[in-house]
Computed example of a mutant assay.
Amino acid sequence: MATLSYSSPGIRNPVAPIISRAFVSLSKTLSIPPSTFPSSIDGAYRHRHRHRPLHPRPNSISESSVSPPASSKEEEEESGLEEEEEEVDPCVEVRYLDPAMEAGSIREWELDFCSRPILDERGKKVWELVVCDGTLSLQYTRFFPNNVINSVTLRDAIASISASLGVPLPQKIRFFRSQMQTIITKACNELGIKAVPSKRCLSLLLWLEERYETVYTRHPGFQQGSKPLLALDNPFPMELPENLFGEKWAFVQLPFSAVQEEVSSLETRYAFGASLDLDLLGLEIEDKTLVPGLAVASSRAKPLAAWMNGLEVCSVEVDVGRGCLILSVGVATRYIYATYKKNAATTQEAEAWEAAKKACGGLHFLAIQESLDSEDCVGFWLLLDLPPPLV
């Protein structure tokens, strides 16, 4: 376990592991080679979920919701194949609201407004608006020519989603492309919606991953090898603001079953934190598999957790070359969260932590406590590394 002061550039003298009763110190597992972590979990989402649809059959305004009855088993099979083809029709725009979902309960949307690797009849790249909620109970897509891309177009499109699906405008809309912040923020402000730059748009990112394979690559205008117009930023990490300083930290692990318990009780036990929809992610992790995390201790744990709660925490990663931990928040902000003195032991522990994260498909967590031997957390954030979208 590494223990250090955030205000000093180096590691303090090593001490015996002091951790919460629920946590397992990573240093206790270093005798296990990283290669022995579960290999059945593919760290790259796009390979693990290639054949797993993320959403139910959409109700599109451009297709019929009534299928003709089948008169035989053969006709039923043929009908099923036809419906499957219709489901991935690259020219169909999605208009879907889960009939079991109460429309007024969907208060937060995730939004992407960007060009796609598809050319229209003018030879220009098509733009697309993709909107969903965190559970994919709401889904909406719409294509646009590149000469109408502005905040007015987006504002009117957002309003039309509310009208066409019969749902109220959301309180918040998250988006992950920093280059679109001006347009999205202006459109949202005019509708009284809070625009939130955040890479915690996991449902949207996973849906885009699926749409790349089932829609964009099958579109007649698809351009193989076309690079994304608005690539995600990965800026050089900055110094950590003083209000985010902790006092000690430790690499820790929790069994996946315990992580699930933490997520299920997040709203009742903690004032601060964020969860992920593990069912939607479909991670094939055994209950006993240890999920890596970072435990941070501070005598001012509650104020620290409150500040962290407003940052849209995305991920924590180890930079072995620099001997530091990088905290990613929002859409384009990275902080040097902590540093450690590089030696064989600390490098091995850091590499083992990253290997454990990769073995869990990128799943990890951040826990804030009053002390490292505390039995309770003040804040708990479930995090996930995902590859950048292909569009």
Rank of each mutant, 00 (worst) to 15 (best):
K186P: 03
L230Y: 12
S31P: 09
A297F: 05
N243Y: 02
Q171K: 06
Q181T: 15
Q224D: 14
S64L: 11
A163G: 02
D279N: 14
R122P: 05
L232K: 08
F37I: 11
P17I: 07
F144R: 15
E63H: 08
F380E: 01
L382R: 06
L129Y: 00
V130M: 04
R46T: 09
N343I: 13
R107Q: 10
S31Q: 13
A295G: 07
G379S: 00
L327V: 01
L129A: 07
P228S: 09
V126C: 12
P145D: 15
K358E: 10
R21L: 15
C201I: 01
R50Y: 06
W109E: 06
T333E: 12
L283W: 04
T153V: 08
S64G: 07
G330A: 02
P69M: 11
L204M: 01
S115L: 01
Q369E: 03
V131F: 09
D319Y: 11
V318K: 01
K186D: 10
E351T: 04
F143D: 15
S264Y: 15
G221Y: 07
R269G: 02
L304T: 04
C377W: 01
Q179R: 12
Q139M: 13
Y216V: 08
H219W: 00
C360D: 07
S71Q: 15
P241R: 00
E77T: 11
S40I: 11
Y140W: 15
Y270E: 04
Y216W: 15
K124W: 10
R95S: 12
I41V: 15
V66R: 14
E110C: 01
L229Y: 14
Y216M: 13
L281T: 00
P168N: 11
R218E: 08
A157K: 09
K73V: 12
I32F: 05
S62I: 13
L325V: 08
V148R: 14
F23K: 06
N150T: 06
A344S: 13
L138C: 06
S115T: 05
G273P: 00
G104Y: 05
G323E: 09
I11M: 11
C201A: 12
T182A: 10
Q260R: 10
A271M: 08
C314F: 00
V215H: 00
S151P: 00
W249E: 04
H55G: 08
S7E: 13
D120W: 13
L383N: 01
Q179H: 11
